[in-house]
Structure formats: C-alpha cells, structure tokens
Design a protein around this nucleic acid. Structure first.
Lengths: 112, 112
DNA sequence: CTCCATACTGACTTCTTGGTAAGTACCTGA
DNA sequence: TCAGGTACTTACCAAGAAGTCAGTATGGAG
C-alpha cells in the first residue's frame, strides 16, 4: 500500500494486527509461555517454517512478541509475549470463548 | 479447499468467521441497528458494492446477519445482526477496546 | 572430515482475495 | 417512452498471501 487509510476504529486496528492465516494460532500457542521456534512449529500444526518466521517477524515488529536469542550451538531462540501481547491475548479470550461456544454451529455453516 | 482441517480452537473458528477485509467494519456498522444496503455502503467507506454483497452473503450463510427483503420499487433490503451476530459483536468488543487503547502504538508500528 | 541439529533465508510458483467496470431487473413518475 | 432509484450480478484482471523446496551458518560429536 502506498497510502494507508487510518484505522476507522479499534477493531479495525486489532484486525490488522492479528490478520494472517497463522497469527491467532501462534498467539494462542504463546499463551502458555515462552516457546522455541521448533516447539511452535509443532504446536501450530500445518505451518511451514517460512510462514512461521514471517508471521513471528510481523508480530515482533508490532511489539506483540519478544524474540530472545541464545548464542549457542545448535542455535536456540525463544519467543514470548510482551506486555502488549498479553493484553491482546486477554482481549482475544472472549472471542475464543465465543468460537468454542458456537463451534458446532460454525462448523456446520462452513463454506465447503 | 477440498479437505478442511477442523478448527483447532475457538479462536480459530472465530477468525474464520470474521476473516476478510471488510467483515469487522460491516459488523461494527450493524452494531447500531438494521441498515439498508445503501446505508452500509456509506458507513463502510471504501468498500465496493461487489465486496459488500459478497461479505454480507458470507455473514448471512454463517447466520451472523439476517437479510430482510421488502418487495417495493425501488427495492429495499435491510441487514441486521442475528442473536449469534450480537453475541459475536459482544465478544469483539474487548478487541475493539484493545485496539482503541493502543491505537497510537499500533499506528506507529504499521508496516509502511 | 563429515554429519547433525537448529533456526533461518530466498527464489519461484500457485492460490486466494480484492478491485474495476459494465450490465440487469423492477416499477414509478414526468 | 424514458430517466431515476435501488440492489444486485458478472466477467475479467491485479495484487497479495501462502506454499514448495533447496540452501546457509555454526560448532560439537563421532
């Protein structure tokens, strides 16, 4: 985008941050505490390394997740939620509950 | 999609429902009560007719919005939230609040 | 001297989403 | 007879998101 329209409401801004196929699931995986790259790859099943990194980088640039590098061999990198990330996850909780509550309904009306 | 992976959590399901460039804003516009097609087009600034209809149809098939046709000339169609839609919007409220709270931060870290 | 584990990186392709612009249907009122 | 107002519908194209897959760096184990 060359010109970016300002956010029209908080929801608009939030949607921009959690947009992308994998971000909600990454956030959810991080909910349980810091995770290494390889652990996330397993937790978020189906994600490719490329996408996982890409999404993590975006979340990092938004200051939602923190990246901690341990200078070891083999390398170790841990990802964790920042305070902002924690607050985002808290705001996401009701949405998760809603989805869980209506899971059957939502599954039934999936496009197919 | 030929084979669809089951939802991994409530958040996953919810994200599927509100996914798409315009759905959050449409939902938000509907928050204030029933709206005609033409009104929504103005409320959700920037949306094209095609996209608005497409997203509304998707929300309708998920039973988030209700479509009421008045057989008049010129035609009149009103869209409103169903009970499910209302509950979704309620779950979305904290997310909107979060976005509003951190609007400056989020605007500052936009990709550009 | 080679292999291993881990965390990436990059080129290339495919798939999905969104945008443009034109056209349809209907009755009313001038 | 013909423009006006409303809510679509369709065909086509462009942009962006995601997937595939091969390659890189490091130092210790064997």
């Amino acid at each position: 985008m060359v010109v970016m329209a300002p956010y029209t409401c908080g929801l608009d801004a939030a949607a921009d941050v959690i947009g992308g196929k994998w971000k909600p699931r990454i956030l959810w995986a991080l909910h349980y505490g810091p995770r290494r790259f390889g652990e996330l790859r397993k937790d978020v099943s189906g994600v490719t390394e490329k996408m996982l990194i890409q999404q993590l980088r975006e979340l990092e640039s938004r200051r939602i997740v923190h990246r901690e590098v341990y200078h070891q061999v083999p390398p170790k990198v841990e990802y964790s939620l920042t305070a902002l990330g924690e607050s985002l996850n808290a705001a996401l909780a009701p949405l998760d509950a809603w989805g869980a509550d209506h899971l059957d309904e939502l599954t039934a009306t999936r496009s197919c």
